[in-house]
Design a protein around this nucleic acid. Structure first.
Lengths: 104, 104
DNA sequence: TTTATATATTGACATATATCAATATATGTG
DNA sequence: CACATATATTGATATATGTCAATATATAAA
């Protein structure tokens, strides 16, 4: 039999700064516009800012604001190609968030 | 071969009101104090409000506020036993949130 | 019924957030 | 270079949120 040190029923207990990071992700996910944006992103794999104003029905500065929030949470990453910003999901961060949610 | 009607890479596409519901859950998850609270809840299975002030280091009204936010999102449910309020996680809501996150 | 205790509500305050118009910056094209 | 276009930033505004003191409500005990 393999012995293991388990502090509680759950394997991983988050410390304060880890909690803050994940909380920031959840907060970023906690807006309908950003959820729609992420859904579009997940459907297409990659999406340009210029393709978002239509479906999201928001002004250009508002779109820019939301992408910034998502970048700062680590949920998406951006790459500039010519005049266009292309966004894609950051799988690593999503994994962390999923794992956290899975342990609740 | 089984044919299936897939509108996109993802199976389920959320409509506006579904998005609002899930967004409300994520917003509820997007606070460090509430994440700590949920972690305690998940460790113990059930927890009383009176057991939260200590670990969370917040005032009684603040604890009450946070439990209310979690109830209104559907993430926890409460039951009054005598003078005490006992809280537990609502697995159904967590499943919906996990499924949504899994599809992104 | 009076008293003590657990929780909820109210009110106040400071901070955060979502939104857009106006403007700035960056990049490609003539 | 001058111009057009895609995105970012700034400033303003309205609304939402986290927090606690004070108070109200509910429940048990004496």
């Amino acid at each position: 039999m393999v012995t293991s040190k388990t502090s509680s029923a759950n394997e991983l207990n988050l410390n304060k700064s880890q909690i803050d990071l994940v909380a920031k992700c959840f907060a970023a996910l906690g807006d309908p516009v950003r959820l729609q944006l992420l859904q579009l992103l997940s459907e297409r794999g990659e999406i340009c800012s210029c393709e978002l104003e239509g479906p999201l029905n928001k002004s250009q500065p508002t779109i820019s604001h939301h992408t910034k929030v998502l970048v700062e949470s680590g949920l998406i990453v951006g790459e500039k190609r010519g005049k266009w910003m292309w966004w894609k999901l950051n799988g690593q961060t999503f994994d962390i968030v999923r794992r956290t949610l899975g342990n609740l």
